[in-house]
Amino acid sequence: MHICFGSRKLFNAQYHLEENGYSSHEEWLEDWRKKRSGRFYCVGKSSYGGGTMINIYATEDDGKYMMRVQVPRCLQEQCGKYIEAYFTVDDRSGRMRRKDLEYAINHQKPITTQVFRREHKDDNCYVHLTTYVQDIPIVYTIKNGCLGIDFNANSLSVTYVKSDGNIAWCHDFPYQWKGKTCGQRKAQMRDLVCDIVRIADSLKCSIAIESLDFSKRKAQMSEESKLYNGMLSNLSTWLFKTALESRCKRFGVQLVKINPAFTSLIGMIKFMVKYGLSSGTSAGMVIARRAMKMSEAVPQCLSLPVDDGKHAWSAWNRVSRFIKKHGIRRTQLFQWTKALEGILKWEHSNPSLPVDIDKSQTKNPPIHRGEVRPDGNVQLCLFV
């Protein structure tokens, strides 16, 4: 248990008074008591005023409130039964703090009060109130489109998809987490979340993210890249989720969490080249479309008869296993037809022959010719 309300350095200073600038033990004791009495709090309860020993009331003067502190009996002869302090509450940064406090007082919600002194601000005292706020109804839903967010190692990729499933806007929000303190990373992430929710508020649309379990990701860090492992270790990934949830509730924006299965793969194969997107924004498009209950079937050239009657993810799982098996890099998927189409068809008919991924050729394969489909397109095949 922590018994030092100041710090260990201050506590040990009593044994070396002159070295720490103290002329006597009484001078040190004064600083020590000042540290110990620098903060106190009172847990609230459901009653008028919202507290037990500390109550908050609204005054007749608009915008001002009164904090009434009940003095312990041993000090009532010296200080009186109550100590009253007046303060104001202003709205800032999109927070309706004044409205929330009035709601808590009028509906007899518990208000937990914390009073603390700031030594670096001329020993001024500040009051921190914690209470329940009124639920804000969700006003922006997937009916007006959706912002899909893909969480990457160095950026947040955001893609706006309209209600008809077509892309309308995309952007990468970069952030730096290396060489920054924990507080700086948190502040940076909160600023990004504020910008994203502000965009959703202007577009009157919902937001969709992947329902990721980073605890499992951290347990499998040896399987990921060094850059991604560093992001998981140094960045509070849970902060992004919690900050986004809180901000969306405050602005009435619907937050949809979707299954993250194959979002990056589908985005790179179906949308990256088609719309000229990055791998992150293309994944964000898949996330937004999935939140709006739109399915993503594999291209016809990659489908096989075994996929008939199965869920689309079964085919995508087959493609994903093929990519991992042959070590196809993400950059190669910018021309995925050359990297996958012919190879998949050839491997399915000749599974025993090794495949050279870089050249999209098998070693000493027989000559195959292009096969014309009923729609007039040419089926991509392998040639010597």
Rank of each mutant, 00 (worst) to 15 (best):
Ser264Leu: 10
Lys204Cys: 08
Gly179Pro: 11
Gly252Val: 00
Gly38Phe: 06
Ile196Ser: 06
Asn20Ser: 10
Thr113Asp: 05
Lys64Tyr: 14
Asp91Leu: 00
Gln188Ser: 13
Trp346Pro: 00
Glu210His: 03
Gly280Asn: 07
Asn234Leu: 15
Ile323Phe: 07
Tyr103Ala: 04
Val43Thr: 15
Asn364Thr: 08
Glu60Ile: 02
Ile287Met: 00
Arg36Lys: 13
Gly80Arg: 04
Lys293Gln: 13
Cys146Asp: 02
Glu210Gly: 07
Asn377Pro: 04
Lys81His: 15
Gln184Gly: 02
Val355Asp: 08
Lys363Thr: 13
Ile149Thr: 05
Ala312Glu: 15
Val158Tyr: 02
Pro366Ala: 13
Glu210Thr: 00
Ser295Gln: 09
Arg373Glu: 05
Arg36Cys: 14
Ala243Asp: 12
Gln176Cys: 11
Met292Lys: 05
Gly21Thr: 08
Leu304Ser: 10
Arg185Asp: 01
Ile199Lys: 15
Gln184Ala: 05
Met231Asp: 05
Gln361Tyr: 11
Arg247Ile: 03
Asp172Thr: 12
Ala315Pro: 00
Lys218Arg: 15
Glu19Asn: 04
Phe322Gly: 06
Phe87Gln: 07
Gln254Gly: 01
Tyr140Trp: 12
Lys109Ala: 06
Glu84Gln: 15
Asn152Trp: 01
His171Asp: 10
Lys270Gly: 02
Val161Cys: 12
Ala168Leu: 02
Arg198His: 13
Met294Val: 01
Cys170Tyr: 10
Phe116Lys: 07
Asp191Ser: 12
Gln108Pro: 06
Ser157Lys: 06
Tyr82Trp: 07
Phe40Gln: 08
Phe240Gly: 02
Glu223Gly: 02
Tyr15Asn: 09
Ile323Asp: 03
Gly376Tyr: 09
Val43Phe: 10
Thr141Ala: 05
Asp150Ile: 03
Ile149Ser: 00
Arg369Phe: 13
Lys45Thr: 11
Gly21Arg: 08
